[in-house]
């Protein structure tokens, strides 16, 4: 019930947003919202804390940007190329990371992501610290000019909805039920005959792929892939978004991305104080607000009934 109301709200807000908000800003938020949803699939529903999701987000952005710029790929094909890269990377990282558990998992993913960061810094085609610039938006399907910000916006919103839909279906499928069983009690799931590692790897790859989709889309929106998107601080930011919105809730990451994104935007003139404030929110969330916004709302909602 609550999910339906929230979905309707999200749909209305998303469809009307470009008429009262700056489209590029909303597109940025949508990319981060999709990124956070993808991350939440892993932490919220399987209990795996990946501290390296920026690798997929940034990696997807760089590859999509390069494919469009250097090989002249049309925008959608370019985005899919970036997404495909994130998928392959997800298989590799996932395969390695699930060999260790708990806190080690977080450290392994963080260290692996650092390889991608250094590649983005050092490889000849990436533009080093300036990032990969000058990615053309191009024509969608050959006839929709994405340089129109309205066309671009609805294209991004569609991508977001598709990604969101995939995550929603994954969570509410028998596969998703098994994932949650693993989160609750891994040994029990194992003893019930589930190949736990295979499920974890699958979830990791889905999450990585969609994070890559978000990053690739962002590269087309902003017409460049930035080094920041591959930095560990981006991995931290997506964790914060998910935490603020509500871990393991369907809409939490979306709301969290909006909140954190809007906040960083509002505070952007304060320089490094943004970091201090985000850090403080992090601490507050961990100490006293672990359910997040949607989590708290759901609890209130359930109490009422």
């Amino acid at each position: 019930m609550m999910n339906r109301i929230l979905f309707a709200l999200m749909l209305i807000a998303g469809l009307t947003a470009p008429f009262y908000a700056y489209p590029v800003f909303v597109m940025d938020l949508l990319c981060f919202a999709l990124f956070a949803c993808a991350f939440n699939l892993l932490l919220g529903y399987v209990g795996l804390l990946s501290f390296g999701h920026a690798a997929f987000f940034g990696g997807g952005a760089y590859i999509a940007g390069y494919a469009i710029k250097a090989w002249g790929f049309p925008p959608l094909v370019g985005i899919l190329t970036g997404t495909g890269f994130a998928l392959i990377l997800g298989i590799g990282f996932g395969y390695l990371a699930i060999r260790r558990q708990g806190i080690y998992f977080a450290m392994v993913t963080l260290a692996l992501a650092q390889i991608i960061y250094f590649m983005a810094l050092q490889l000849p085609f990436t533009g080093g610290e300036n990032g990969l610039q000058g990615v053309p938006r191009g024509m969608l399907f050959g006839f929709i000019d994405l340089n129109s910000s309205l066309a671009m916006y609805y294209f991004v919103f569609t991508i977001f909805l598709v990604g969101f839909g995939i995550i929603y279906r994954t969570i509410h499928s028998p596969f998703g039920e098994v994932l949650q069983a693993i989160r609750e009690n891994e040994d029990r799931a194992l003893s019930l005959g589930y190949d736990v590692n295979r499920f974890k790897l699958f979830a990791f790859v889905i999450s990585a792929t969609l994070a890559g989709l978000a990053g690739a889309t962002k590269a087309v929106v902003f017409q460049f892939a930035s080094l920041t998107s591959a930095h560990w601080q981006t991995s931290g930011e997506v964790i914060l978004m998910t935490l603020v919105g509500g871990l393991g809730t369907v809409f939490g990451p979306v709301l969290g991305a909006l909140t954190v994104g809007a906040l960083s935007h509002e505070l952007s003139s304060y320089g490094s104080w943004v970091q201090v404030i985000l850090g403080t929110i992090f601490v507050i969330c961990v100490m006293v607000f672990r359910r997040g916004i949607i989590g708290e709302l759901e609890r209130q909602f359930q109490k009422r009934r």
């Binding site: 501290f51 104080w273 970091q275 985000l278 850090g279 403080t280 992090f282 961990v286 672990r290």
Partner: peptide
């Protein structure tokens, strides 16, 4: 802070100290 988190999943300790890192780093970067 940390003392209150021992009963929870250990990832919360990591997240808390990550937040503290951002605060300290941001303060000095100013």
């Amino acid at each position: 802070m940390l003392q209150r988190l021992y009963k929870l999943d250990h990832i919360y300790g990591l997240l808390l100290t990550f937040g503290i890192t951002l605060i300290l780093q941001g303060l000095f970067a100013n």
